[in-house]
Structure formats: structure tokens, C-alpha cells
Design a protein around this nucleic acid. Structure first.
Lengths: 234, 234
DNA sequence: AGATTGACTTTGATTATTCAAAGAGTGATA
DNA sequence: TATCACTCTTTGAATAATCAAAGTCAATCT
């Protein structure tokens, strides 16, 4: 057998990936609560408990009853491989196949569990071994190394010039909105005002004349990095 | 839900596809024996019996106990859709992704159950809506129409000039051999001699000086169609 | 006919994943 | 402190796919 895996089941891969993603989502909390997992995976709490106890047995997670789970190194490595496959596939669908970036997530979700190492390597090659996907998310290496880079969310930075680094959401509606408003990863904009009373962020993208207004909630899902001011005022 | 199906299970799709393929393999016999299916799918006879009875219930096959199965129209349509997906994927991997045609079968086998209609359509488009795959096999339409064309196997034709139409085998070793000897679909050759005693077929491909010798067995897996003699002798 | 063989069917059990519903901790509330 | 409200766990059951082993049919061979 050359390229094919099929060690972990489809289900196991999804569970591990989701645990990983929830861990990322709250960097403060060390453990993921099972209820949150149940919610995210769309299964009943009982199911989660049963499955997680199984993963604990297999050394993929550490499970503290009534408290939560966290991934072991082994579990995290597996999760990162799934994430890697997902992001390479998503990149491929957008960059090479010119599919709409807002509609590609589901496909990647299905493909990530079945592509062979061979096929994945070929996609990676055709993409030129990218280090981030179309959302700006980093692509883990084949040895589960994650290119580090922590950019702050828009809701935590002062007014100034920025570029979008990453968009933390998969909702097609949201992604379409991002596209239409020129806020895709890599695109520059200026944060003009933050109104701490109303929670409204005012920004300006060069493609549009009218300023864009965002809520804090939305601003929290857009990661940015500062850039030199386009026209430095002496 | 735009592009995704997921109606039939992975397993059901494979069973139907295999029944279809075995039906094709022996056009004479109307029914496929369950033992043969068990063999092909690598499961025990008991499993096949159980599954097939289920399919009969669902109207996908007609099952005659201790005799065999055949697909209903509904079952055949489903099978042809799986075949369609398989062949488009295989074409895509070879033509667009430049993967080795001998190593692509397994990948296609896995992907055929998960690609969305969207993704499939995009692959089809990038390929220019081909009517055959790299093996020369016809690609069923999205309405399960099969482009007709029945070409004889090499073992049944008289000496003369031919082109390879289709290669009926998935074995990597065999496919590599076919490639190395310039007998891929579309490639021309001359059948010089058929020795009915020894069962040896002698053929000549322009790329090589030495004639190629094949057994009847091998000749049966190569479908051909006659071409005008390259240098007609007045 | 009686016995043998091969092909298929039945039966009972197993694994993975899931749910519904009932039970049990834990902490906040009155 | 007694009680509520949550959240999580347990239990029992279901479904899909599978196997091993025992049983049955039908055709063939003495």
C-alpha cells in the first residue's frame, strides 16, 4: 500500500479535529467541555461521553469526567494531519479549480478523510507548497508542525493601517460578505475609529468610498496585522 | 444543500457498482451469482446474502435465492452514477493532475463516494466533458445514459491495423506494461499474426522494432478498433 | 437410490456509532 | 440548607456492516 491510510475512522478524525479546533478557539481554557463538543458535532451528550471514553483508552485524549477533554500529543498530531489535509484541499479547490471560496468548505470536509498521501502531495506541489490556506489559516506540515504566527483580532487593535491576516469563520454568508467588502486575507484597509460605547468599528477599504461599519462581534473574527501607513504624513 | 448527496452509503454504492461491473463482464449471463460478488468484494457469502436481500427490499435489485441478482433500472442508474464519478475522477487525476494512470485507481475508488455534484461538474468542465476515461472506458452521462460503442477484444479480430480502444484491467503491473509497450488507448499497432495452436498474438508497434508477443488471455483484455492501413498498397 | 460436493442461506454474535431517557454531580438560589 | 437548574454520565436499545459456523439445496457420482 503506497498512498492510502484509513487507520482512523471518518468519525474519529472528525472528533479529533473538532477537539483541536475548540481548543484553539479558547486558548485560555485548557480543557474542552463535552457539551460544547456535542453541540459542535451535532450529536447528543451521551454519544460524546461514550466516544471520548474510547479515545481516552486509545491514548488520543486525556479525559477528566465532568470536566473536559484535551488532546494528547498523539491525538493532536492526528488532528493536525486532518487539518493539514483540509486546508490543502480547500486551497486546491479555490486556487487550482477556481471554485468559490465560500462554497468549498463542505467539499474539503468530505475529501479530507479519503485523499491518499500521494494525491495530497500532488495538490500541495501544484499549489507551490503554501503555508496558509485561502482563509489565511496556517497549514500544518506533514510532521504536524504548525507555522507559528499569532495575529490579533481586529477588535483588539488601535486605529491604523492593517491587512487582513485571517478570517475565523466558515459561514458562506459571512464569507461572501467578506469578499464583497474587500476584506479577504491579504487585503489592506484602514481602521478609522473604534467607538467603545456603541461597539462600532469604522473602517475604510480603498475599493469603496463609503466607510464600513462592523460590530465588535464581527471584528473579533477578523485577524489582522499592521502595515506601514500607505501615505506616511512626513 | 447544494452539491452534496450522501443518500446511499459508501457500502451500498460499492455493491451496486460491483454488480454492474460483473454484469458487464459476462454479457451472456443475465444474473450475477452471489459467490462471485462475495469474491469480488472480499466479504463472506453470508454477508452478501444479507445485503442483497436488503437491496431487493429497497427495489435496487431483483434477487432470486440460490440463483443470483440483477439490477433494477433504479439500481442500474445509481450504479452508473458511481461509475460516472469514478471515471471522471480518474480522468482528472491523470489529465489534469498528471498522476500516473496506473496508480490512480485506488484514489478514484475512494473519492467517487464523496465528491459533490459541484466538484464533479468542475472536474468535468476542466476536462472538456470527455466521453471516455484514460482506459478508454465510456463515461456515463449525468442521466445514466451510456455512450454506446462495442469494440471487440484483440483476441477476436483478424490480423490488420488497429488502434487500442480500451484496456479492461486495473492492475498497476499490467497497466505499466501496457504503457511501456505503447498500447494505451488511442495508440495504433499492427496485428501481424495469430497462432491458433499456441495462442500467441504477434503485434508490431511503430515505437519498437521487435514485435510484441501476447497470450490469448492478455489479448482478451485489450479492446481495439480497426483503422485504415497506414500505407495502403494501391 | 444414497452419498458427496459446492454454492448459497441462516443464525447468532460483534463492532462502531448513535439516540432517548433516566440518573447523578455541582454549583447557584432562595 | 433545601432546592433548582445545568451539565454530564449511564443504561438500554437501534442500525449498518460484518464474520464464523452450522444448516439447506441441488446437481453430480457412484
Amino acid at each position: 500500500m503506497k498512498g492510502h491510510r484509513f487507520h482512523m475512522s471518518f468519525t474519529t478524525e472528525n472528533y479529533l479535529k473538532t477537539i483541536y479546533q475548540l481548543t484553539e478557539r479558547h486558548p485560555a481554557t485548557p480543557l474542552v467541555r463535552l457539551g460544547e463538543l456535542a453541540e459542535e458535532l451535532g450529536v447528543t451528550p451521551g454519544t460524546i461521553t461514550t466516544m471520548i471514553r474510547g479515545f481516552d483508552q486509545k491514548g488520543l485524549v486525556i479525559y477528566k469526567a465532568r470536566t473536559g477533554v484535551k488532546l494528547t500529543k498523539k491525538g493532536r498530531d492526528q488532528a493536525l494531519q486532518v487539518v493539514r489535509r483540509h486546508r490543502i484541499i480547500e486551497s486546491f479547490l479555490v486556487e487550482v479549480m477556481k471554485m468559490d471560496w465560500a462554497e468549498v468548505h463542505e467539499d474539503a470536509e468530505a475529501l479530507e478523510h479519503v485523499v491518499s498521501d500521494n494525491f495530497l502531495a500532488r495538490m500541495d506541489e501544484m499549489l507551490g507548497f503554501p503555508s496558509t490556506d485561502p482563509h489565511g489559516d496556517p497549514i500544518p506540515s506533514s510532521t504536524s508542525e504548525l507555522p507559528t504566527r499569532e495575529h490579533p483580532p481586529l477588535c483588539e487593535v488601535p486605529p491604523g493601517a492593517y491587512k487582513v491576516q485571517r478570517v475565523d469563520d466558515q459561514e458562506p454568508v459571512f464569507l461572501d460578505w467578506i469578499s464583497e467588502n474587500h476584506l479577504r486575507p491579504g487585503q489592506p484597509f484602514e481602521l478609522q475609529k473604534v467607538d467603545s460605547v456603541t461597539g462600532i468599528f469604522t473602517l475604510k477599504v480603498s475599493e469603496k468610498k463609503a466607510p464600513l461599519l462592523l460590530s465588535t462581534d464581527i471584528a473579533g473574527r477578523i485577524r489582522v496585522h499592521p502595515v506601514q501607513d500607505p501615505q506616511p504624513r512626513i
